[in-house]
Design a protein around this nucleic acid. Structure first.
Lengths: 125, 125
DNA sequence: CTTGCCGGTTACCCCAAAGTAACCAGATAA
DNA sequence: TTATCTGGTTACTTTGGGGTAACCGGCAAG
């Protein structure tokens, strides 16, 4: 392997870092957070209200991970009370469109999915 | 609300079916399976070997869910030994390109992510 | 003086997701 | 005869993801 050759990153490989990032994206809140931040910067508690069902703990945890991965950035403003704003980084923006597509797909095809589920359950008795 | 008006499907809403499908996609194996089936139909044990780390139990479970959702189909051939082939349905194909983009993103941007992680860990001490 | 909002952190605990292992039938190869 | 391939199912066990609740400091409103 020559020096300028990059390692064969592969999401199918359990030990590949690409797989790890892929798995991280596929967690309960990451995709929803990134999608929500696509249009504008959002404060912590606003995010908490927008993502129906998220707890403060999981929101903090997921935000930290995304910040660590360089997908989002955290900005503190010395207002009263303090304002903490989360927004996409440049890197995060390169991903946001794809995730938006995924969410739009879910919203646009959900009826077909529900029909398929009903038929499947019927056939299985 | 008039009769022809469709419900406001919304992935941010905890009780919306679109959110449920979205959450299902964001599980450990669904995205990888769909991506693997994008190029060709694959048999059970081949899939098991390709998706590094998956157990037979989880593979069966995830495949059943995806079949129930109408994203993949299961075909049995009376060969010896029996052949069971999984492939994308038409519905599944409408999703495959987006998922492929997601995987490609992970493979193409992983180095930037790794750098960001290192810097983050350094700053936190 | 107490309550509320902001943006969290921490400790505790539990249930469900996922791993492991055994087992199934039928046929073929060694 | 034993082992191996196919494609699973089932029971048992574990672990860690995620929920809940308490708590923090600082300020403002009632």
């Amino acid at each position: 392997m020559s020096a300028d050759e990059q390692p064969p990153y592969d999401v199918y490989n359990r030990n590949c870092p690409a797989r790890m990032v892929f798995t991280r994206l596929a967690d309960k809140w990451s995709l929803l957070i990134i999608r929500r931040l696509k249009t504008d910067a959002v404060r912590f508690n606003q995010l908490r209200r927008d993502l129906d069902g998220v707890s403060a703990k999981m929101l903090t945890q997921t935000l930290r991970n995304l910040e660590r991965d360089g997908l989002i950035q955290r900005q503190i403003f010395a207002t009263v009370p303090v304002t903490v704003e989360y927004s996409l980084t440049g890197l995060g923006q390169t991903l946001a469109d794809t995730i938006d597509e995924l969410a739009l797909w879910a919203e646009n095809h959900i009826e077909t999915v529900l029909e398929s589920q009903q038929q499947f359950d019927q056939e299985q008795g």
